[in-house]
Design a protein around this nucleic acid. Structure first.
Lengths: 247, 247
DNA sequence: GCCGATTTGTCCGTATGTATC
DNA sequence: CGATACATACGGACAAATCGG
């Protein structure tokens, strides 16, 4: 948990915005007054505010101030920008998350797996299929590929609990970043069966493919998360930069 | 166009990474040496590097350095994090983008539109449907709602060229941020007709709903972009923050 | 295991530019 | 025009992580 000063200020401001201590559409206190409030430097305040901008909580306006534009939103969403395990996400949204391991094996990557995952052919991997239930409903079917020598000792029991917890707290791995792509794909018979869908209804689902890297710069995980479309929702806040071609 | 020093350094480093002036998986020159190279302060370098982290180009490792993890990727993607008009996006990816206006009208929001868009009932709006072609194929069907009094004088002719260009260069509006949600929805007859799809094949499509705000803090646009699933691709780079519940 | 050099992370203070009112 | 507010940039100090001797 980041215990830095800017992060504490960021969380405090964020919470004040969420609880409407700062009114919607109004300007927050100026940077200079926040400096006094939090007894810190200008840079530290600006850094906290910068995070809030990325979150879509506020917009900064040169010469005017910082406006609160936060609106509460359905919490079923997967928010972009951060990496979260399934268990962390369900805890954050106060839902009951359960994971069932459908399949667990070791295998060696071939040409087909290389194309799909990016792991070179010949790499030794763990491959597993897991089904995630939220409030009792099977909503996400995961295909995970883990680099065997980066994740030694993985077992179905661990996979049922939390792999990220195992990686971070037992193996002391540092997870750094994850490149993700959202696409829409045709449903397969496997999807239909486990996600309890009917191809006469929706015949597609939302797929998040991700390549995750640790602090050694190695991609240790490739995952394809297949989401039931009627419960899928992915959020983002984009900030406008003046285009290169502008006057 | 941001002409600040940090931004110039950011672009220079980015370009050097893309052209492999810095080798993949290796560390970039240290901050101290970059300070000499670019004749600037440490903060300025750090800011440029921070942007590269957000882009997923590099990862920073305390005590070690900054590692290049950039891999070239298909350019059909919509990248997250920035706001781009359709014309800007097709220029960036060197594709031929054409827009056709299917429908253009003025209307007043009712309860149904309020639920869908967030514009209060009674608000006067422009409503338009536009079809975007990429390299001759109709790939995106847009439903746009614009706040009439924020976007006066909008015409079908402008909508065929570029509305954002009109907003920024004629009306001198400053577009600030956009809240977006990606979902998967059932195809409609309209989609089927204009996107030249067949519901026996894919019966869903990817939908990006966005609420866009200007520097007065008013939401002036609600748009629903309906994408042909076989050409849809949305990219993201996520950075791991240590979870709150960590030891 | 320890120490020192290197490198990134956090924080502070200050100065100047630019937009708003 | 002046006061206020955010944006950019500089320089310095110390902490924390890494690595080699």
């Amino acid at each position: 948990m980041p215990k830095s000063k800017y992060y504490a200020i960021y969380r405090d401001l964020k919470q004040k915005i969420e609880t409407e201590d700062f009114p919607y559409q109004e300007l927050l206190p100026s940077e200079n007054s926040l400096i006094v409030t939090y007894d810190c430097s200008r840079n530290t305040i600006r850094r906290a505010i910068g995070e809030l901008v990325r979150d879509g909580y506020v917009q900064t306006l040169q010469g005017k101030g910082v406006r609160n534009i936060f609106r509460p939103v359905e919490q079923t969403s997967y928010t972009i920008g951060g990496i979260e395990s399934f268990h962390e996400a369900s805890a954050r949204t106060h839902r009951k998350g359960v994971t069932k391991v459908l399949f667990f094996t070791e295998l060696t990557a071939d040409a087909k797996i290389e194309r799909r995952t990016g792991f070179p052919a010949g790499t030794e991997l763990y491959y597993l299929q897991r089904l995630h239930y939220i409030d009792g409903k099977p909503l996400i079917l995961n295909h995970n590929y883990f680099l065997k020598n980066a994740v030694p000792g993985l077992t179905p029991e661990i996979a049922e609990r939390s792999i990220y917890d195992y990686l971070e707290h037992t193996l002391h791995m540092t997870i750094v970043n994850s490149k993700r792509v959202v696409t829409v794909e045709k449903i397969t018979q496997i999807d239909e069966k486990y996600l309890e869908m009917n191809a006469d209804d929706y015949n597609c689902l939302a797929v998040i493919s991700s390549q995750t890297f640790n602090s050694d710069g190695v991609m240790f995980e490739y995952t394809e998360s297949r989401h039931r479309p009627d419960y899928f929702r992915f959020q983002d806040n984009a900030v406008r930069r003046q285009p290169e071609t502008a006057v």
